[in-house]
């Protein structure tokens, strides 16, 4: 694990942070068989901000789940920080999620009837961190997403934009290498969406966090340095903008 961490935080050029090779995912069997991914090759370097677009059902979420160690591919190889993760068990994947990843979902996925602070602390609890340290880091993370003073609010007392900020605070509180965001602005209006995108861009530029984001909106995809287009379980196009990725700055 620690070796992976070192490798993940100091990627070399020939060893990208994330490398997918011939990744396929098949749901169901026989007549009900759905080939969600039909052979994905993908290299993501540390510090990149990648937008993933594509029609509904093209396999974006499936790819994100595999990238986030929430699901396993049917076939293919996944190297994270140079280490193969295909053979890892459930708990080892949980440790990878806990230590290297942060998730932001379309539906926020906060714990109901639980304060913003407690929500943000959650991953730290599973890391086994002491309470005082946890509180402090969670407060800092909430301040960073502009929610200072809202620590004791329940999700039900927060607007959609604010809830998504809490979710982002929860994602960054562990100081992750990668944030995986599946349609993070899907439930928000344009103004709120732009605030969230500014926040993510900041995390990418200032903290060097690698961001993989699925979106339907070209305006949001414009924030990224690189655009990967999925069609029918395959990558159709993969284009980088002229601007260099964060770690190269």
């Amino acid at each position: 694990m620690t070796k992976t961490a070192t490798a993940a935080t100091e990627p070399s050029d020939d060893r990208p942070l994330i490398r997918l090779r011939r990744i396929t995912k098949v749901y169901g069997t026989g007549d009900a068989e759905v080939r969600a991914l039909r052979g994905i090759d993908m290299d993501i370097r540390g510090g990149e901000f990648v937008a993933i677009m594509g029609p509904s059902g093209s396999g974006k979420s499936t790819a994100m789940n595999i990238l986030g160690f929430l699901d396993k591919p049917t076939d293919g190889t996944y190297l994270f920080g140079g280490a193969e993760v295909d053979h890892l068990g459930r708990d080892q994947l949980a440790l990878l999620r806990r230590n290297f990843l942060g998730f932001v979902f379309q539906g926020y996925n906060l714990l109901a009837r639980t304060s913003a602070l407690d929500n943000v602390e959650l991953p730290l609890i599973y890391q086994g961190m002491a309470a005082a340290k946890r509180r402090q880091l969670a407060r800092e993370a909430l301040a960073k997403v502009g929610l200072k003073g809202r620590e004791d609010h329940d999700p039900s007392q927060l607007s959609g934009g604010q809830q998504q900020r809490v979710a982002i605070a929860r994602a960054i509180v562990t100081n992750p290498d990668v944030i995986l965001a599946d349609e993070p602005t899907g439930n928000l209006d344009t103004a709120r969406s732009r605030e969230i995108m500014d926040l993510l861009t900041n995390l990418n530029r200032k903290d060097g966090i690698t961001i993989l984001m699925v979106t339907h909106e070209p305006d949001m995809a414009d924030y990224a340095d690189r655009l990967i287009h999925f069609v029918d379980g395959r990558i159709e196009t993969d284009t980088s903008s002229t601007r260099e990725p964060a770690d190269a700055l």
């Binding site: 986030g68 708990d91 230590n99 929860r170």
Partner: peptide, 15 residues
């Protein structure tokens, strides 16, 4: 759903 969230942020099976 709560369990899903806990698992996503890195809770192990044991936890």
């Amino acid at each position: 759903r709560e369990i899903g969230i806990r698992l996503a942020v890195g809770a192990t099976e044991r936890q």
